[in-house]
């Protein structure tokens, strides 16, 4: 009697472009639904910038800041930056760290999910939260702050939100990889709040005590805020727009490079 040995082989995984887009879209949809339903996240990430803008922005209705800058409009850009950074740092830093610690990420990695799908979905979700925050703040500014905002200015703010979220998403990734899950929320706050203050996101940079001014150009939040102020022509004149883009871009590369290095080191130990 003949004996045959059956062996196995694996055909390579080929997905069409459409299938890939489908997976990324679904991943993003559920990441967004997950976060919007997580009240501790959605209420604080959207609520804090809104509350601060009401206290500081709307309360300064009609005021100008010396060289003709409308305070409520200047602070609109500031709190938009503040909101976007929060969405990225909490959504990705805290979200990814807890999914990693709970073993959920490992289960996903054992499935044929495209390896970048989860991360890209988290980044797009942070951008979506950025757009929501900017839309609410802009509506408040126009409706109650006496701010005139052209459609072009609004579109530029949104565009900045989409681009500006990415470097902070990269920072969130690094935090999720380095900081133990139980501590990420605290660590994010310890970075986010002082950085926001020293970058002029709460109080315009020119009104900050002098000791903070030399620090600002080293903070990514400062560059983002200044880029948003350029939409209104309110930016400081010390650094060019290209300089701010370079600052943010460099910061992003630094975060991604460090994340890559940490990821590969933990892979080898796993």
């Amino acid at each position: 009697m003949a004996t045959t040995t059956v062996t196995y082989s694996v055909s390579p995984l080929r997905r069409t472009f459409g299938e890939m887009v489908g997976i990324y879209a679904k991943e993003t949809k559920y990441e967004f639904l997950k976060l919007i339903r997580t009240k501790t996240f959605s209420l604080s990430v959207i609520g804090f910038p809104v509350m601060f803008y009401i206290f500081f922005g709307l309360a300064n209705r009609g005021n100008t800041m010396g060289n003709g800058q409308v305070a409520a409009k200047y602070l609109l850009a500031s709190y938009c930056s503040f909101g976007m950074i929060g969405a990225a740092l909490f959504g990705i830093g805290v979200g990814l760290a807890s999914e990693r610690a709970q073993g959920w990420l490992e289960l996903k990695r054992s499935s044929p999910m495209p390896s970048m799908a989860n991360l890209v979905a988290k980044c797009i979700t942070a951008q979506a939260f950025g757009v929501i925050i900017i839309s609410i703040l802009a509506a408040l500014a126009i409706g109650f702050g006496g701010v005139h905002l052209s459609l072009v200015e609004f579109a530029m703010l949104i565009g900045m939100a989409l681009a500006g979220t990415v470097p902070f998403a990269a920072m969130g990734l690094l935090i999720a990889l380095v900081v133990p899950a139980a501590a990420t929320s605290g660590v994010v706050n310890l970075i986010y709040l002082p950085m926001s203050f020293m970058s002029g996101l709460w109080i315009p940079i020119q009104f900050l005590p002098g000791i903070f001014k030399p620090v600002a150009p080293y903070l990514p939040a400062y560059h983002l805020a200044q880029l948003l102020e350029t939409v209104f022509g309110y930016q400081e004149r010390t650094i060019s727009t290209a300089g701010h883009w370079a600052g943010l871009g460099g910061f992003m590369l630094l975060m991604l490079g460090a994340s890559w290095a940490v990821f590969h080191r933990t892979e080898q130990d796993s």
Partner: peptide, 21 residues
């Protein structure tokens, strides 16, 4: 190899799954 993962399934010890889905 990623392609092997289309033909396997796994139930791992997961402490928590995203709760709000």
């Amino acid at each position: 190899v990623a392609a092997t993962r289309t033909r396997i399934g796994a139930m791992l010890q997961v402490a928590a799954v995203p709760k709000t889905l």
